[in-house]
């Protein structure tokens, strides 16, 4: 027992020094003291780089445009057209869509998901006169890869179009604030943005329900 806690105390000191905040240091020290055989390997492991909010690309454009649009209507009668709560929901949907795009990009980038490679493999099998079962498996694999690529392309396009629309909304709101504008037209644009944002979550479902080409 003394040896266990001796090693635990040493681990607590070493591991706690690696933490940035006092709360994290206290938690790590307690965990290392009590359960160093389990905690130490985890604390010493490297986490994969977290995918933070991007500062480029359509997601960043949308978020920036929404933020500036919100700023433009703050304290004006136009604020009712773009409530803070709606913008928060839009941000969450856009973040989800952006994460899906990131995951799809990672999946499409896998060497085993290279469509050219899968196509060559299928052609090679056909040339070899492989069994119908083997050929069917290779065709399914190629089809899945192509569907993944189509899905990624659709998600990217949806985000790009939404970014353009958000830019238009922002300029419309800024113009309305300083020069006055047709509120009805602005309401239509806001509705269109909301519908497109809702549609982001439906892109996957759309793909699933579509008949194969």
């Amino acid at each position: 027992m003394p040896m266990y806690f001796g090693v635990g105390a040493l681990a607590a000191v070493v591991l706690a020094r690696r933490e940035a905040t006092p709360a994290a240091r206290a938690t790590t020290a307690a965990a290392a003291l009590l359960a160093w055989p389990l905690w130490a390997p985890i604390a010493l492991s490297r986490e994969p780089p977290a995918r933070g909010p991007s500062t480029r690309g359509p997601e960043a454009r949308i978020l920036r445009a929404l933020e500036e649009a919100l700023e433009a209507v703050r304290g004006t009668p136009l604020a009712t057209l773009l409530p803070q709560r709606s913008v928060e929901a839009m941000r969450a949907s856009v973040a989800r869509a952006s994460q899906r795009v990131g995951e799809l990009e990672a999946a499409v980038a896998l060497p085993s998901h290279d469509p050219e490679r899968a196509r060559r493999r299928l052609e090679g099998l056909e040339a070899e006169g492989a069994s119908s079962r083997t050929l069917a498996t290779a065709r399914v694999h190629l089809d899945n890869i192509e569907r993944l690529a189509r899905l990624l392309s659709r998600e990217r396009r949806a985000l790009d179009e939404l970014a353009d629309l958000c830019d238009a909304l922002r300029s419309q709101l800024v113009l309305a604030r300083y020069a006055g504008s047709n509120l009805h037209g602005i309401g239509d644009t806001v509705d269109e943005v909301a519908a497109r944002v809702d549609g982001l979550d439906g892109v996957f479902h759309l793909e699933e329900t579509e008949a194969p080409p």
Binding site: A35, A43, S45, E47, P48
Partner: peptide, 18 residues
């Protein structure tokens, strides 16, 4: 499996276990 959030999982797990 992806090596994500190991510390937060371990921290919560230790607390739950105790």
């Amino acid at each position: 499996t992806e090596g994500r959030d190991l510390r937060s999982i371990a921290r919560a797990s230790l607390l739950a276990l105790l």
